[in-house]
Write a protein that binds this DNA or RNA. Structure first.
Lengths: 158, 158
DNA sequence: TTGATATCATTTGCATACGAATGAATTTCC
DNA sequence: GGAAATTCATTCGTATGCAAATGATATCAA
């Protein structure tokens, strides 16, 4: 009885495994998260090759400030997808470089207003053409049509 | 002559500007780098919701070790796209958790061999089904067909 | 063989990235 | 009006991620 039962269990196990051959062939390099991380790394590397003295988050902060003018730190953070702790560090470093200046909101005393300095505006205006090249080089492995499709799908994911 | 020349220059300038209206309408949220960063952030967040006690890089290290068995630290790093400094920290933390063990290469004394412990193998085997859910949820905004196209194009970029 | 190179690993320094805790100021709601 | 909840900013701790410098070991080449 013992032998027969074990044998039946073995067969059942094999059937189950045949229906789910997944467990054993998980391929890390094909997972979206892994490739996303690599694609992001590649982009950051291309960015650094074109703009050595500013990081992508710092550039994003300046570019957004150029769009919206003066805003609070948190507001800016939400516009460029950074939480409060992260945006503070970015703004601190931009302030130390003289690219942004801070002031207190007159009415709401909690808020810290951030705005571009003249130097910051010059910098971002000067860097935007380079940023276009960065975008182009990042998308270079794709044809124009592929790039358009990719951007549409990527936007859906983000 | 002076007036005529200036006038001609003005017209020329306007033509050039008409051909390149770019400078003023750089849209950060449409740049591939910015969206790539956001998509990556979203994936990391989904990952954390499913696997709270391990980060994506730590998971990648375990998954790759499961594939290839014992390897050197640097070799593992190149397999999962981490430089030497980064992979060291990841392996250190996995070692502290008892998921990997280190040993010296007998022949080449520079190399530090990394391998899964029994506990590490149990962990990765247990987590792989969750990782499949993470991949699925990350791609959820796309239809099956869109996801297939996206993965092909993303792989070209990375 | 030995001197130049290259590889493996470590360390340091800097810059995101985010959860959690804290304090100050504001808004909401009863 | 005032207590409760919310918002804004800061700080701390932990974890990538990478450049650059360093030391130990291997390999290559003259």
């Amino acid at each position: 009885m013992g032998w027969a039962a074990v044998s039946a269990d073995d067969n059942l196990l094999k059937l189950v495994e045949a229906e789910e051959p997944d467990e054993n062939d998980y391929r890390l390099q094909e997972q979206v998260g892994f490739i996303l991380r690599k694609a992001h790394q590649r982009h950051v590397s291309i960015f650094a090759a074109h703009i050595a003295d500013l990081t992508p988050p710092q550039f994003a902060a300046l570019a957004k400030l150029r769009d919206v003018g003066e805003t609070s730190q948190n507001q800016l953070g939400s516009l460029i997808a950074m939480d409060a702790a992260t945006v503070k560090g970015v703004i601190d470093r931009l302030k130390a470089r003289g690219f942004v200046e801070l002031s207190k909101h007159e009415v709401d005393k909690r808020r810290l207003l951030v705005s571009l300095t003249a130097e910051g505006r010059d910098a971002i205006d000067r860097l935007i053409p380079l940023a276009r090249e960065i975008t182009q080089e990042t998308l270079a492995p794709l044809s124009a049509k592929e790039a358009a499709i990719f951007m549409k799908l990527l936007a859906k994911l983000a």
